[in-house]
Structures are given as C-alpha cells and as structure tokens.
Nucleic acid binder design. Structure first.
Lengths: 273, 273
DNA sequence: AAGCTAATTGCGCATTACGCAATAGGAGTT
DNA sequence: AACTCCTATTGCGTAATGCGCAATTAGCTT
C-alpha cells in the first residue's frame, strides 16, 4: 500500500512558515522573540521579521506593551469565537460514531455541554436506519446521564456545587444520584477509568455508557457513548463496551488535536446502512 | 496628522493571502469553494488551491465529508483554546483602564466571568488617600456587583435561574437583590443602557459602576468599571461617569475586534477630563 | 558615552509562487 | 450509458517574490 507518496502537492512555503509561527507562539507560555522564531524555522532573522510583521498586520500576532517579542493577537481569538465549532465536532466524530454504533450494534450518541445540561448533537442508530435518531437536539441533565457525567469528569466537588446549585437534585429514578458529594466521587472515578455509566439513573429501562472526548491539552469538549434498554445492556458487557467507547473517544480527540489527518484518512469501512 | 505613511515594511504576499482566506472562511456561514476564494483574492484558481492546501495541511482548514469546499479546521480552534486569553484583555485594556482611573479619579477595575463569580483581573488606582483598594485576583458574586451584573447583561431569566441555582441568594447588604426576577429586570435595563451599577449591594459604603466589554459579534468578554466610597460617589455623578465608562468599554471592544491597531495606537487624543 | 545585543531596513540574486493551459473528477442531461 | 459542463487539480515556464547577507538603527547595560 502506497502509504505516502512524495509531497505531490507543493505547498506555499511562506504561508506554511507563518502557520508554524502561529503554532509555536500559541504553544509557548511566554512571549516569543524574533530570534527564537528564526531559529525555529531555520531562516534568517529578517525573514522571520517579515513573516511576523505580516501576521501582526492582520492581528494574528501582537506585542506586549513596550516589548518587541510576540504573542497571539486578537484575530485568532476573534475568528475562533465567532465560528460555529459544534459542527466540527459532529463532522469529525460522525464516522467514528457510525462505526461505534455498528460495532456494538446499539444506538450511539455525541453530546456537548450546554449550561447545566448535556446536548445531544448527533447520533447513529444500530440497525441500518438512514434517518438520524430522534434524540439529536435533546437536552438531558448533566448529573444523571452517562454523557453528562462524562462531560463533568474533571469537575471538582466545589464546582459541582456551584454549577448544580445548593438545592436538591431532582430524582428521576430510584437510581438517580441526588447527592453532590456522591456525584463528585463518581466523577473522580469516571476521570480515572475514562468512562461514565448511567444505570437507569435518568430513565427507567435505559442504560448508557459514555466517555469524555478530550483534546490535546486534556480539555473535555464533548462526549460519545452508547445507549440501550436495560434488558439488552447487561453489566457483563460493560467492560467490552467501555474499551470500544474509550478507544473511539480517544481517536476523535486525536483527530481534533492533531494536524496530520484532515484529508483522506476516511475510515472507509463504515457500513452503508 | 500623518495618518498612515506608505507601507514601509513589506509584507509576505502569500502569507497575507492565507490569512485573508482564514478570515473569509471564519466569517462565512457556509463552506467556501475554491472559486469563491480565488475571486476574493483576485488570483488564479490554482493559486487559491495551493494556498488552501497549505492551510489544510496544517489543520487550519478542512473540508466537509465528501465535499471539496472549505471550512475552518481544528487547528485554529485548538490554538485559540489553549491560549491564555485573559492576559490579552489585560494587555489591551490596561492603557484604557489607567486613563479611566485618572479621568474619574477613582479606582478602576477590569473583570471577567469565572463560573458564578466575577474575577478582577486588573485595576488602576486613583490618587485619593481613601480609595477602594485594587482587588486584582478577587472573586465577587455576579448578582450583586456592578461588574458581575455587567457580565450578566445578556443573560435571560431562564439562564439566570440555571446559573445561580434555585436557592435564595445571599443578602450581603440591605440593598442586595435576592430575587431572580428582579435581577433579570436589572440585567435587561443594563443591556439597554449599557452599564450596570452597584449601590452598596455587596459591600456597605461601596458604590460601583461598570460596563460590559463586547467584541465584534456582541459577545461579552469582560467588564470595566469604577468603584468609590458611597460618600464620594453620589448619584448626581452617575450620568457623567457612565458615559466615560461606556466609552472606554466600547474602545476596548473595538481594539479587541479590530485588526488595525495592536501596536502603537495609543489613544492620545482622549479628552483629559 | 561606549559597547553590546537584538530589531529593522536595503539590496541583489535565486527561488518560489504565480498564471496559463492542460488534465482529471463529478454531477446532471439527453 | 455516452456526453457535457463545471470545478478541482496538476505541469510548466517565467518573472515577481521572498530570501539571506550586510548595513543601520534602537534599546540596554556598563
């Protein structure tokens, strides 16, 4: 298999260098001097200067007051702000989502956090149904669903209290966790093992297993998981399901974080429903 | 006044074009085709193609599954995510903050939202013997401070309830608003007139006036305001103070949104009092 | 004030990126 | 299914562009 042919498509050198500068400065914890940039790119100081100047001109870089070195400017922030990134998660995750639904043969969902709730932004059905499942767009509580708890995995008890309020949590089923301390304990377990479960804590007869999707720096940007009727989703399957869900969550995180695969790289083996 | 001398410093054409592509795609609500990019830059399709390819290669652009046109890729998002933007607000706002403190001759603060609190990230002192101390680093409640309410200006009653919880709000002083409905009403007023006040709602003997800092798309990213002992900060001054605070908040928002002024550009011509 | 380091500018050559034109890939039409 | 039109992609030669070198300026330290 011809893994990678030679760089068939030539790329624009100076643009590429400019992008490397952006990456380097975004990554650095301190302002970056011209010399460092020149070293990094292995180019002359004058070239680095002109590249940096071009970036600054468009607001992608700036200099701290009175300094000559560079930090990120407002443009990158502004562009990232106004963009609708939820679609990207859907796009990137969709293929993985389908794969997961097929492998496990249960409905799979992707959710993001939306205030005090988890919002289902995409789903894939188990048995070759073309239409998207009904729950896309639905809001469910964070504290009693697998997706919600996965999204809360890094949240400390302190923050949980602030987020969910001092009042008692609504008890949807007999399994619903209504105690913040218990929830915090569950979260730390979820964080450690990498996935969350919902044993009919929100809806009777519904079990769910979900894992947080983390990007490069560890931040949780969404969750992916599977749901099934309690009858079919017996505890003995948790281990196997958990592995697959975690693997997919990790893959999505890598795709979101990395820069190496946006093209090609379609897992073509997705079943055509 | 020598507004702008000729473009003394040459900029790198292809990098500049790449950045224009990023801006265009971030701004567009739908995926952008190669042809549109070529038209936008007034270059040949082949040139646009190679630029776009270079951007995609580094993850700054991507293509929807099966499509050939372009959307933003994960890199921009990732870089913006992991960067510590609060420093940028401090940096950009600092000069305005000092100016405000000098003009009004009271302590001025900048705050951002941090969960259920407002966090003071910078301050500038006035030259009164008795003045409000700079509280940089301090967390104060959102619902009973001028900064907090400015940060909440766009928040609907529904969201306020979710954020602040169903429980009663702590009553710090006799003026503290403890009723969500009343708070929502205050917020809509703040949104309309552009500034918030704190009439000793958090600390006795302390009055404050703050305005939300909004960027291009209207989103609130912080607040700026002034604080003074009640004795000195009489109601008759509100109107004049409000104007100045709002002007400064607006200036900061413009600086954050625009791309033309990151360097130099000290607002020297501001009226001195 | 001198001396050092780092940023900035001028300049000329070689590389690079550009436009043109040819090719490939898809979607719709007859 | 063959044809057609539209857009993406590739090859190529040229000249504009961006690069390194070296000179100049700016900011600091001694």
């Amino acid at each position: 298999m011809p893994a990678n042919k030679a760089p068939q498509v030539p790329f624009i050198q100076s643009l590429d260098r400019g992008l490397m500068i952006l990456e380097a400065i975004a990554l650095s914890k301190h302002p970056v001097s011209l010399g460092e940039l020149a070293d990094l790119l292995s180019v002359d100081r004058s070239s680095a200067f002109r590249l940096a100047h071009t970036l600054r001109r468009r607001g992608f870089l700036a200099s701290p007051a009175g300094r000559k070195d560079y930090i990120l400017g407002p443009s990158m922030w502004r562009l990232a702000q106004q963009y609708d990134w939820s679609n990207m998660l859907i796009r990137v995750a969709n293929q993985h989502l389908k794969l997961l639904a097929t492998q496990i043969n249960e409905t799979a969902h992707i959710a993001i956090r939306e205030g005090k709730n988890a919002l289902f932004i995409d789903s894939a059905d188990a048995n070759h149904v073309i239409a998207v499942a009904g729950q896309t767009g639905e809001l469910v509580p964070l504290y009693c669903t697998a997706h919600g708890k996965a999204l809360l995995a890094d949240t400390e008890e302190q923050e949980l209290k602030a987020l969910l309020g001092p009042g008692p949590l609504r008890k949807y089923t007999k399994n619903t966790i209504t105690n913040i301390a218990a929830l915090a304990k569950d979260c730390s377990l979820i964080k450690k093992r990498g996935y969350a479960t919902d044993e009919a804590e929100f809806r009777e007869e519904l079990r769910c297993l979900a894992a947080p999707i983390r990007v490069e720096n560890g931040m949780i940007v969404g969750s992916i998981g599977i749901s099934a009727p309690t009858s079919r989703f017996v505890k003995e399957r948790y281990r196997s399901y958990a592995e697959q869900v975690c693997k997919v969550a990790s893959d999505i995180g890598l795709t979101l974080s990395s820069v190496e695969q946006s093209t090609e790289q379609e897992p073509k083996e997705v079943v055509a429903g």
